[in-house]
Amino acid sequence: MLSRVANNLYWLDRYMQRSYGLLNIISTNHNSTIDSGDYSSWESIMNSYMGFKSDKKIINYDDSLKVIEYMLFDYKNPNSLKNIVSKSRENARSVQDHISREVWLSANKYFLFINDQTTLSNFKKSDPLNFLNKLLQFNLLYYSTSDITQERGNAYCFMNVGKYFERIIQSVDFLYFKLLKLSENEKNLQEIVFWKNLLISIGGYQLYTKTYKSIFKIENIIEMILINDNFPRSVKYGVNKLKLHIKRLNTFNELKKTESFFLAEKLENNLKFNTNKILNSKGLRFFLDDLIKEINELSIKINEDYFS
């Protein structure tokens, strides 16, 4: 497989995962503002997800609908949903001969929907949560289509490397920006609704209550998001998958142990053998700093090993 094609497959799924993460965070935050009436949370989301500079006060954060409209439809912001989905589809378009017909149709239909002129006016007329759910269905459809129809070869592995890489970054960001900021916001800690929304935004509420009942402890949340073996959004789960697909790629392409594989293995071991350090919230920041460095390094190596 061509390096360019491999790179486009990787970005196809990275962008698709990014759009999924963005929709989840918008949906949950909107939900939580209804409970709390605290709109300030939009600002931090705009900063981290939209690369939005806080000095440009073009948005009134008290108006959730306007903020959501901006995040979904602003065509000038490269991180808006519209642009992320368009980039994902553009990557799909350039690798049509490597993805199943159904995967292509699914990405193209998502793109056509978000770019349809009536979509924005429909958004303005509908309940935002319903509308966001409708958009999320496109992501879910994409994942299931890809799971059912995509042959398990090179293309599937590159797509998965992209998907899990993006997912790991999202989970690490979540820990960094959400949990580490808790101390600044301690009044919220006693409110169940706060924890509930936090866990919903990363898709882990159901698993959490099953495992820990409704006793919310920061260590338990960290455990679940960082090192839980069965939570599909945990960093550990993502790293395992990443390693698996990198290993398969090396077999398919008759490559010896690549640097990427070595780094993925190193990440996996760090998560496996540093449990105490991780669960101690004071050590978490240092651990996450190291983790982010390693993830960046892995990204560079994936580029060097397969795309250049």
């Binding site: 061509l2 360019r4 094609v5 398919f252 392409n253």
Partner: peptide, 22 residues
């Protein structure tokens, strides 16, 4: 067959090669 762009191809010793992941 593979769909390539000019940047995917390279010449070596008067033979044409495509730049694959492997």
């Amino acid at each position: 067959i593979e769909l390539v762009e000019g940047r995917d191809l390279v010449l070596n010793n008067n033979y044409v090669y495509m730049k694959n992941a492997g």
